[in-house]
Every structure is written in structure tokens, then in C-alpha cells.
Design a protein around this nucleic acid. Structure first.
Lengths: 246, 246
DNA sequence: CAGTATAAGTTGTCCGGACATTTTGCCGAG
DNA sequence: CTCGGCAAAATGTCCGGACAACTTATACTG
């Protein structure tokens, strides 16, 4: 059946087949390493290598002292975007720069409450700013950054625009960040932004809403940008085969 | 310096430091496994584990018989989107369905030549279609799929709309696909699409251009969709630390 | 000189063993 | 009954060794 390639790949392929066929439901304990050694007639090293591949594929989770449990019935397929900073993720080059021009307190309306995942009327802080080309200072888009006005946020954001920007960049540090949600929509250019962007109100504009979450799943902040007509390009690559790779 | 955690993590951390400091430029050969064993006073197993972590982090590339070379000066940071099908990647649910209504030959104009990465005037095939809700058959967007008209493509696509759709789905198989490039832009609703979508020409519309590449980097096809006002949401998670993870 | 066989060097696979760390259940003390 | 300690079980770390597969350079042959 799985007679090709290294022994650990054969073991891994067998286990994948059995998991796919539902021999162990999600959450169920797999046989222990020693059981697998006996069953497949391999050393513990080989069994562990097979299990490691399944783990890299997201099919199992292992816990020292506890055991190995099924996490998914199929290998995960992950498209990934390699980045070296949050700016890369957003496809802004290093040639652009965000500046805040004003900070205001707002009670969350329906839209903002949905963005910030808070109750209607909750106190929020809204920072309004512009992203400009670093050299020509040409205006690229206008941005509103929203945070829930906790006492902590009040102290760290509710100061001056430059300080609020620094606070935001610190909060969006790679080591804190865990998930980013990006939404794109075509909207008529709002009157408020039309003046700044020197375009006609009602013309097609690209609105991008980005919500940033930390490792615990808590929302850090939401940023809403309006672009005159720009194109956003996201390039994603399919990850490598974690089972068969050398 | 790196006195905490397992030995292989200490070795990995040391090597990462040295690579970051430029001791070995990108492309340079690292010491062999046995050299590292001697230098750090560890077994080959431990040295290999350390190197494996660096490889998972994208910092080195290894080739049997040849050696270990530096691939990057810093660990890669990858945001990933877990998907189980190409439809998931595009955020279309299983509740929608694409249908082709017509196929026509076209000489590439400037726009299409840029999309398909071919010369101006080259022969192309364009399939026009609609994505509908599977249940209500409500029209969600109109799509044009473009391929370069090679003899092979001519035979496989230049037939009937249903066969062309099947061919496209086969070509976009997960196992062939390697990279997807998505661009979003706000455009005025084109007159041609306004009729089909039952909207006013000139109203804000979201145009999505998606280009699909195979493992060799060759473009498979380009798909251009126009949506009345829909929102596209992409959710991406930061990959786990491949160095320190258990 | 061209091409081929050979040898050395390097990483990949696989085995066996030992001890550490973490989790879990059991059992007894209070 | 509750709590703590203890032992069993499971995975994690680390060692040593052996051979296989692959790459590269060398030496040899025609």
C-alpha cells in the first residue's frame, strides 16, 4: 500500500488514511508511541518522526504526559504570506508614512460598535490620520483608527497625535499580534474624506477595514481606511508539503 | 547567554545570532553537522534538531550530500490563511456557484496583456460567467476568466462553457496551484456589467483580479470579477514560533 | 582532452537505549 | 470528603552508533 519512500512516511501515510476514515474521531487519543512502534515494527525514533509530520500538518496535537489527540481529519492547507513587518502585510511600502491629525472621544454608533465588538454607545477613542508618500508627501488615503476607551487605552492613546501613533505601532508589534482580519469594499467616496483627498464625493472609493487581534483573541484596534481608487494586491503562496518534504 | 531551555534551542539560538550578525552571508555554507557537534559538544541528533528548527524558520536550506547554506538572515514571519479549497481562499462559501455563459477568442489588449503577462495582441481565450447563490440563484458578481490561447488551452478551453468550467476547476486544483495573487480596486460599475447586475453604471463596484500560478511560477489563468458592493474579508493568522515550539 | 569510474564528504534514515518532564489516577492521611 | 503524595504512563530530550543516498572532487582510462 504505502511501500514507497522512507519508513516514517509510510507510517505517516497509514495513520493519515486511518484518521481520514474516522478510526479516531477528532479529540480522540491515538495509540501511544510505543504502541505504534510495536504495530509498525519500527523504532521509537521513526514513530516519532511520523507523528511529527502529522503534527506539522495540523492533524494531531501532542501533550507531554497526556498523549496524542486527533485535531483534524485532513492535513491542513495553508496559504501564507511572508512578511517582515505589519506594513508588509498591508502592502504599504516603506515609502509611506501614517500621521495622525486629531483625536476625539466618541460614543460607539452601530458601525463602530460592530467593528470594535463592543456595545452600542460604549466610549471609544477615534484617531483620524492620513497616509502620505514619504518623499512627495502626496496623500494616499485617510484613516480612522478606533479603540475601546478603557482606562488603560485612555491613558495611552488619549494624549497627542504623535504619541498616539507611537502607542499604536507598539500595540501592533509582531510579537503581540496574532491575527489580522482585512475587509475590502467599494463605497461612494464620503463627503468628509472627499475634501481631504481632493476627489468628488460619491466617486468609487476603496474602503479597507482592518481588525487586529492579540494572542488571546482579544481585539486590539480597528482601522478604517478610504482610498481614492488604489489597488490592493495580496500575494499568497501555498505552503510546502509537510508530510513528504525532506 | 542562551542558558535556558533544551540544548538544541540553545544551539539554534546561537546559530541564529551568528547568522544575523553576518558571520555567514546568504548562500554561504554553514559548518557541517559533525563540526557543530564538536563545537557545541552535542550529539548529532541535537545538532540536527537545531538545524531543523532553523530550516523550519526559513533561515537555512539543506541538501543531502552537499551541505547547509544560509537562506535568510532572519527567521521568516508568515501570516497564513488556512483553507480546505480554493473557494475558501476566495471567501466564497459552498453556497455559491460559478457558471460560464460564453467563450470568445480575443487578441490581448493592453489590460489583458498585463494580466496574462503576454505580448500585446497575443491570442487569448476569454470566458464570461456569473457567480450565483446556489439556492436562490441570485446574481452575486460577473467574472471574466482569461487564458493565453496555446494549442493546449485552445483544445481544453475552447469548447462549451460547461466543459471550460470543468477544465478551469481542474487547472486550479490544490496540488497544481502554488501561488495566488489577489488585487482589489474600486471602479465605476462598467456599462457592460451594469445590465447583468441590475445596477446603475458608474456606481461604486469592487473589482477583484486574481492570478493563479503553478509550482514552476507559470501563470495558469487570470480571473477578473466585478461585484456590486460586496465586502471581501480575509482573515490571516500569524504562524507559530517554529524555533521554540515543543 | 573528454568521459567515466572511484573515493571522500555530507546529509538522510533508522536503530537501541537512557533519563527528564509533565500529566493523570490512585491511595492513604487527616 | 478533601487534600497531598506517590507511582504509572506518556511525551520530550539527548546520547551513541550504523548504514543509505546524494553531491562533489579526484584520479584514471580511452
Amino acid at each position: 500500500m504505502h511501500a514507497k519512500g522512507p519508513r516514517y512516511q509510510q507510517v505517516a501515510a497509514s495513520l493519515i488514511d486511518e484518521i481520514k476514515q474516522g478510526r479516531w474521531p477528532v479529540g480522540e487519543l491515538l495509540p501511544t508511541e510505543l504502541d505504534l512502534c510495536e504495530r509498525f515494527g519500527v523504532s521509537r525514533h521513526t514513530a516519532r518522526e511520523a507523528l511529527r509530520r502529522l503534527r506539522d500538518a495540523g492533524m494531531i496535537e501532542r501533550r507531554q504526559g497526556s498523549g496524542t489527540r486527533v485535531a483534524a481529519l485532513a492535513p491542513r492547507i495553508a496559504y501564507e504570506q511572508r512578511v517582515s513587518s505589519i506594513e508588509d502585510l498591508l502592502q504599504y511600502g516603506k515609502a509611506t508614512k501614517l500621521e495622525f491629525s486629531s483625536i476625539e472621544r466618541r460614543a460607539a454608533d452601530r458601525t463602530i460598535a460592530q467593528w470594535l465588538d463592543c456595545s452600542l454607545g460604549a466610549a471609544t477613542i477615534c484617531m483620524h490620520g492620513q497616509r502620505r508618500d514619504r518623499a512627495s508627501r502626496a496623500l494616499l488615503c485617510v484613516t480612522d483608527v478606533h479603540v475601546v476607551a478603557t482606562p488603560d487605552a485612555e491613558q495611552r492613546y488619549g494624549t497627542t497625535p504623535p504619541l498616539a501613533l507611537a502607542t499604536m505601532l507598539a500595540d501592533l508589534n509582531i510579537s503581540r499580534l496574532s491575527r489580522v482580519e482585512q475587509s475590502f469594499a467599494a463605497i461612494p467616496m464620503p463627503k468628509s474624506a472627499a475634501g481631504e483627498l481632493n476627489t468628488r464625493a460619491g466617486a468609487p472609493a476603496l474602503a479597507a477595514l482592518r481588525r487586529y487581534f492579540d494572542r488571546s483573541g482579544k481585539l486590539i484596534l480597528a482601522a478604517h481606511s478610504v482610498h481614492p481608487g488604489n489597488t490592493f494586491t495580496l500575494s499568497m503562496s501555498l505552503g510546502h508539503d509537510v508530510i513528504a518534504r525532506r
